[in-house]
Simulated assay, not measured.
Amino acid sequence: MEKHFELSDSEFKQQFINCELNPEIFTHEAHLRLAWIYIKKYGIEQAETNIPRQLREYVKSVGAENKYNTTLTLAAIKAVYHFILKSDANSFREFIIEFPRLKNNFRELMACHYGVDIYNSQKAKMKFLEPDLLPFD
């Protein structure tokens, strides 16, 4: 079990907002959980506004600004939303069990949408690149 599950959704979100979340527990799965929490609580539009802004503040606070990627952040939010629309899960734990591809095959999932390397592209890090293969709908 990942360490982020030791925190309730509310504690997890608040520690993230306050830049107090231990970076060691902010794994890929924890990023997905953050998207799930925001989408469920505020809706997709607000999640797409709040998460990038707060994530930039968080990575700055832990000295990892170079790891922030606008395209990857927004693409992950859009992917989580896509699967939320297909889900009956009442918790993130149920959700990630229902859709393990998000955690275990995320790069493969992104490769369905992007032919370009969004992980290493400076342009993708700076601004959101629309998918060039399959749109997020």
Rank of each mutant, 00 (worst) to 15 (best):
S91V: 12
N18Q: 15
H82Q: 14
Q14I: 13
F5Y: 15
N105Q: 11
K60N: 06
K125T: 02
Q14A: 11
E48Q: 14
E29H: 03
E108T: 12
H113E: 02
C19A: 09
R33S: 04
Y81D: 14
V59P: 00
N120H: 14
N120A: 06
V116W: 04
L21T: 10
K123V: 13
I84F: 01
R101A: 14
V59H: 05
M1D: 13
A30V: 01
A76C: 09
L129H: 03
V62S: 04
I84M: 14
Y58D: 05
C19D: 03
N66S: 14
S91H: 06
T73E: 03
C112M: 15
C19I: 01
I39K: 08
D88R: 06
E57S: 15
G43T: 02
N18L: 15
N69I: 04
Y119M: 02
R56A: 13
F136W: 15
K123R: 13
L21A: 07
F136N: 09
A76R: 15
L55H: 11
L133N: 01
E48I: 11
V116I: 15
A124Y: 03
R107Y: 07
F5W: 10
L133F: 03
I118V: 15
L129C: 07
H4D: 05
Y114P: 04
E108C: 03
L134M: 11
L72K: 14
P52S: 07
